[in-house]
Design a protein around this nucleic acid. Structure first.
Length: 583
RNA sequence: CGGGGAGUAGCGCAGUCCGGUAGCGCACCUGCUUUGGGAGCAGGAGGCCGGGGGUUCGAAUCCCCCCUCCCCGACCA
């Protein structure tokens, strides 16, 4: 404490946060019951995060240092890729959201609030704001290309927050947006960011698989999800073991199939099947009637509407498969069934559809030489023995079912596998999706015409990464951070310093030396038994532990333990700094 | 939104069926001992038993309503 000039008051001097005795940190022996995922348990036990409400977390000092390291890696790679950092508002006017129509399409997850000057939303993402902002600033092709990014909180009222930091209602994201004058420019920007993403994840110690994905609510054409295989993944992706194909389950397609032989001869018979509008109920009905069939032997006929023409199309998949509606179609709604009485919900069959002017698409698996149980196009009736070529025709075969493990790879034909994974990043070629909707998102081209921007957007779930990394980098004792992310490079422990002044003095000295050499050091100067310090050091997960104890001092050494491998070696007392600063 | 489970000290849990002094372990405070892998002894502090209503002489416990959290599913840039 020292005197505050001119006042009788004193000014507090706070102890350095690198002393563990002063750190805001409490480790827990037991994980809270609400933590399911290992990463969540460890992050809470090790005192990195605390839950405030469902899907909302406080980052305690260790967690915040970790997060800032994640941000640093991302910043370095974004800056190196030529992106410019800025910061956009969390509180956003509904105006731009009305312009893109997403006030409606994203209403389920939008946090909305009433301000004095009108209604606001808490930004779940920033395409609207960035497009309006850049649109107002950039008027000429001479200012393009441009790539801006920010690291900012996002708010989504998720149906189900999960797994600690994995899926929160409040989370931090890095989002970058590229603006180009042409599709080729957009593609070049995309390639640059794609490469930057691979470096970011590499530096975070994550092995990612970029997968081709469907674009969902964000719009655009080409896009990739950067998937990290993980037991707490909420997604699956399809992967060819040969490594030549990887795609999101929604986007994945299967390769060609070869079938030989003819379908067995079986008469087409109509059956009375009341109350059986689903595959499951149909199977139950047939089984109860003494003619058991399995879902695989039924033909699911899914009615879709072509959005452009407003005409119905039918997609055929085996009953045990999910249909994957092709681009430009959407599932029938009740109103569509009302408008097309020839298609009877739950009892559609493929027979004679062409005569009604309805196109029939079929997954390639439907080309198998076999007969099917399917709808009779008559209420409460199904048929058995339906045979391709005799009873019904297919206009186009393709990959119209969701791909499952064992389906042929579209590139090489090998059976693919289905892998559980987390989406760590996502990149999109947006094209003109936003620039044609937001007012003023145009520039004057070289030929003096007014053109909309060709855009891309690129997200990384910053606050999700600690969870993803922890999930991949831990052991029974606790966390194991990669060098780039560790809150501290070195965890220095004094063992039995209370009864041995030499230990205390040596540890103090090493702490001072390492710190002035520019290393970040967490110094466990607490009056705790060695066992407690070891356990905490392993739990917290710094890459290098330095153990200063009477045992080593007698030999003139301190012990170094590498957290990842458990490998230990002795460093001479006067060579500690040198050993830690030269890799 | 549908199905399932749970709310008792900072964390983990018992007690609830069968109503009667709110408990245990870890963590926390004091003192002594101990000290290379989550120490021991002694003493202590800490509770709207998720909230509201009801039944009862009496409710953590029984009844009704609500809230919150977790899991599975639906949903998801």
């Amino acid at each position: 404490m020292r005197r505050y000039p001119g006042e009788g008051a004193t000014v507090a001097t706070y102890p350095p946060a690198m002393l563990m005795s002063k750190l805001l940190l409490r480790t827990l022996r037991d994980a809270p019951g609400d933590a399911e995922a290992i990463s969540h348990q460890l992050l809470v036990r090790a005192g990195y995060i605390r839950r405030h409400a469902s899907g909302i977390y406080t980052y305690l000092p260790l967690g915040w240092r970790l997060l800032r390291n994640v941000e640093r890696v991302v910043r370095e790679e974004m800056d190196a890729a030529g992106a410019q950092e800025m910061l956009m508002p969390i509180l956003q006017s509904t105006e731009v959201w009305e312009q893109t129509g997403r006030l409606k399409t994203m209403e389920d997850i939008l946090f909305r609030l009433e301000g004095k000057g009108g209604e606001l939303v808490l930004g779940p993402t920033h395409e609207e704001v960035v497009t309006a902002t850049v649109g107002a600033e950039v008027d000429s092709y001479r200012d393009l290309p441009l790539n801006v990014y920010q690291i900012q909180f996002k708010y989504r009222d998720e149906a189900r927050p999960r797994f600690g930091l994995m899926r929160g209602r409040e989370f931090i994201m890095k989002d970058a947006y590229s603006f180009d004058a042409s599709p080729a420019g957009m593609q070049a920007a995309y390639a640059t960011m794609y490469a930057a993403y691979e470096r970011v994840f590499e530096r975070c110690g994550l092995s990612v698989t970029p997968v081709e994905a469907e674009s969902g609510a964000i719009g655009g054409e080409v896009n990739h999800e950067f998937m990290v295989t993980s037991p707490i993944g909420e997604d699956h992706f399809v992967r060819c073991p040969n490594g030549d194909y990887a795609a999101n389950t929604e986007a994945a397609v299967a390769g060609e199939r070869r079938y030989e032989g003819d379908a067995p001869e079986e008469e087409l018979i109509e059956h009375h099947t009341p109350d059986s509008p689903s595959i499951e109920l149909l199977v139950q009905h047939f089984t109860a009637a003494g003619r058991p069939v399995d879902a695989e032997s039924t033909l699911k006929c899914v009615a879709l509407l072509e959005e452009e023409t407003g005409r119905p199309v039918i997609v055929l998949v085996p009953g045990d498969r999910e249909a994957r509606p092709p681009k430009g179609t959407r599932p029938f709604e009740q109103a569509d069934f009302d408008a097309h009485p020839e298609l009877i919900k739950g009892y559609i069959g493929p027979m004679g559809l062409q005569k009604l002017g309805i196109r029939v698409l079929a997954d390639r698996t439907v080309g198998a030489p076999r007969t099917w149980v399917t709808g009779a196009n008559r209420a409460d009736h199904h048929v058995s023995g339906a045979t391709l070529g005799r009873d019904f025709e297919v206009d186009t075969f393709g990959s119209f079912a969701m791909v499952t493990a064992g389906d042929p790879c579209p590139r090489c034909g090998e059976p693919v596998e289905l892998v559980r994974s987390v989406e760590a990043g996502h990149t999109f070629q947006l094209g003109l999706t936003y620039s044609t909707k937001i007012d003023g998102a145009t520039f004057l081209a070289e030929d003096s015409t007014e053109q909309p921007f060709w855009m891309g957007c690129y997200g990384i779930g910053i606050s999700r990464l600690p969870a993803v990394v922890a999930e991949q980098h831990h052991d029974d004792a606790g966390l194991i951070w990669p060098d780039e992310l560790a809150p501290f490079a070195v965890h220095l422990l004094s063992l039995g310093a209370g009864r041995n002044p030499d230990v205390a003095a040596t540890a103090d000295r090493i702490y001072a030396e390492l710190t002035s050499a520019g290393l970040s050091v967490l110094y466990d100067d607490r009056d705790q038994s060695p066992g407690v310090k070891f356990a905490d050091a392993d739990l917290l997960g710094m890459p290098t532990q330095l153990l200063v104890g009477a045992k080593g001092l007698a030999k003139g050494t301190v012990e170094r333990k590498r957290r990842r491998t458990g490998e230990r070696d002795d460093l001479p007392l006067d060579g500690v700094v040198a050993a830690l600063t030269t890799p």
